[in-house]
């Protein structure tokens, strides 16, 4: 038996290789970001700060749903059974979480670049916003990974994911857009540290729940 770490690394590597072999999904999402931003550009040209922020996070949300949803759908039942016989479910979900975080980090940066290209750059603290964006990408992908795992058990996947996911993601999204608001103004917002702590707390909560509950989900 290999060590847990090498198992997780192998699983992440497998997902990355698979992603690159099936590039249509990857480029599909890139095209999706591109065309959404272009449509927004055609409609509102250069929006003001608040709208810019809102647009960015909504696009980010949908990118995350599209990118993460398929992480469990692409696995056929037979293959899942094969994994089940090989690795502990906890390592499997850890690998999926890491892989989705990596994926979402890339997409977050791409969304940000597209947003700045098409909608102008109202940011005053660019690096700070980039940090928030990466943090947001991680938070979103963690929660949606677990939801994708749940949705994969049910039959109508995509719609179910939206129904389950949006109420759960709302508090995180509200927190993120509030934190990100600081990047548009020269003054520091009060209560920023508290919001960061809350966000980190949410992430830890999601990871802990995923690690505890996923083995039950896989029992079949």
């Amino acid at each position: 038996m290999k060590s847990p770490l090498s198992q997780i690394v192998a699983l992440v590597k497998k997902d990355l290789v698979l992603e690159w072999r099936q590039r249509h999904a990857l480029f599909g999402i890139l095209l999706y970001v591109f065309s959404t931003m272009f449509v927004i550009n055609l409609m509102v040209k250069e929006p003001e700060d608040k709208i810019w922020n809102a647009m960015f996070w909504v696009v980010q949300l949908f990118v995350c749903v599209n990118a993460v949803a398929k992480s469990f759908l692409q696995e056929s039942r037979g293959r899942l059974l094969y994994f089940y016989s090989l690795v502990h479910p906890r390592y499997f979900i850890t690998a999926k979480l890491i892989y989705n975080v990596l994926l979402m980090t890339v997409f977050s940066v791409v969304t940000l670049v597209c947003c700045i290209l098409f909608l102008g750059n109202p940011l005053m603290h660019g690096l700070y916003f980039l940090g928030v964006v990466l943090l947001g990408g991680i938070s979103l992908s963690l929660l949606f990974t677990m939801l994708a795992a749940i949705a994969a058990q049910a039959s109508q996947n995509a719609a179910l994911m939206a129904i389950m996911g949006f109420p759960l993601i709302m508090p995180i999204l509200m927190l993120l857009s509030n934190i990100a608001q600081s990047a548009f103004a020269p003054v520091v917002q009060p209560g920023l540290a508290g919001m960061f702590l809350l966000l980190a707390g949410m992430d830890v909560l999601v990871i802990a729940l995923a690690l505890i509950l996923f083995p039950f989900l896989w029992k079949e």
């Binding site: 677990m146 749940i150 058990q153 049910a154 039959s155 109508q156 179910l160 129904i163 389950m164 949006f166 109420p167 759960l168 709302m170 729940l209 509950l213 039950f216 989900l217 029992k219 079949e220």
Partner: peptide
Amino acid sequence: TIYMAYLVLRLSFTDLDKRARVSAIFNVFA
């Protein structure tokens, strides 16, 4: 809304055991 999503999630299953397991997990999240 999260709890309503839980109730909708329950409706989407036909298999009783699967419904019980998946919705129990979602309930803990909720």
